[in-house]
Nucleic acid binder design. Structure first.
Lengths: 206, 206
DNA sequence: CATTAAGTGGAGCGAAACTTCAACTTGGAG
DNA sequence: CTCCAAGTTGAAGTTTCGCTCCACTTAATG
């Protein structure tokens, strides 16, 4: 039952500074950056970081949550595209470009327990709108019947691995990879069935 | 000009023990395991580990090098398969199964500077024989003309990302991913060109 | 203003990892 | 069997990092 009074002006400003500094540093050097480095970049003391975010984990959570917001927005924009297939291509392209530019992002999802929890949360928020994307494309005859939303997750994961390593200066490489995977999705006669939610969740656990 | 006299019996035995213990531990828990844990599992003192491997990095290098040996052997076996395409499928399947069972492996390649160096070294040793695989399949009309060895590297990287997360108990998931990618490689009309060696190298650098 | 709850900073603590070292043990050549 | 170079050991040194604490500052309310 905390009253949750709004933060003081200076505290709000510092919170934003910390988040911005953290995103920038982690995008460049990965999640490994120490909170001392974050504090320095944000021009605040370590103590201030810890007052706003009880531990490193909650800072990462906050950062990641902001990213999921952006992805959800993108996906719903994409589902308004005239051509369903074009929508999927645009959506994946944009998300992957983000990932190529942000080294920390995929590291977070890969990182043990926390990654599993965040991936689960992200899936819950993202799946409905991705589901729409896939269904639309399938109804338009642009995807085989046995391709499901789980396959889009696989696609993102796979090309994301390339984008992560390639970085923003090597977009030709991950675009080639995306081209291969998209061609694979449209091909008939795939082996196996599209992974469902629980399977995808288990992907992150380990 | 070191004479490089062979190691004493007990030293040889300990070296093997250390490598075996390290591989097992890192496969299970990732590269993060401490050398103290490795020493304990190998039933030697930490000092012994450091006598054999000047630092953690050289232990990892030695481990990884043994893995590359295995992959090269697999690839050359695959290039003797009657059906070229079958050879590629078997090769990728086996390598990916290894990766699914060994958590440390992909972590090594992903890990900054060292990963870049090792990936480069691995590529030099593996490319020639993978090149053969691809050329054979292309000549047999089982692959489009614009698919090159760089695309096989991309394929391994992509499905490897899935296999790594899925683990050995979820092989259906990464097999589905492999199926998508292989279908994509065989499809005509891919966008872009196959990445060459230098591009692939840059993939690991970051 | 005056008051005070909220916010700030950064030295320092403890845990965990890597690495070194000097005293002790042992394989194997002569 | 003797001897010593090679090997072993684990306690201790060194970093590095996450996090706490508390004396000090400041925004906002009346």
């Amino acid at each position: 039952m905390t009253a949750d009074r709004p933060l003081r002006r200076d505290a709000q400003r510092n919170r934003r500074r910390i988040l911005d500094a953290a995103r920038e540093l982690m995008a460049e050097r990965g999640v490994g950056v120490s909170l001392e480095q974050v504090a320095e970049a944000a021009e605040v003391g370590v103590g201030t970081v810890y007052r706003r975010f009880p531990d490193k984990e909650s800072l990462v959570r906050a950062l990641f949550s902001e990213h999921v917001d952006a992805v959800v927005t993108l996906a719903s924009q994409a589902s308004e595209s005239c051509d369903p297939w074009q929508g999927i291509q645009d959506f994946l392209g944009t998300v992957l470009a983000m990932q190529a530019a942000d080294r920390g992002l995929s590291q977070i999802l890969r990182g043990g327990e926390l990654g599993a929890a965040l991936a689960h949360e992200a899936r819950i928020r993202i799946t409905p709108v991705v589901d729409q994307l896939v269904t639309r494309a399938r109804n338009a005859g642009q995807l085989p019947a046995d391709v499901g939303p789980g396959d889009l997750v696989l696609a993102e994961l796979m090309v994301g691995a390339v984008a992560e390593r390639a970085g923003p200066d090597n977009s030709a490489t991950w675009r080639r990879a995306l081209s291969i995977v998209l061609a694979g999705l449209r091909a008939d006669g795939l082996v196996g069935t599209t992974p469902d939610g629980s399977t995808i969740d288990r992907l992150q656990g380990r």
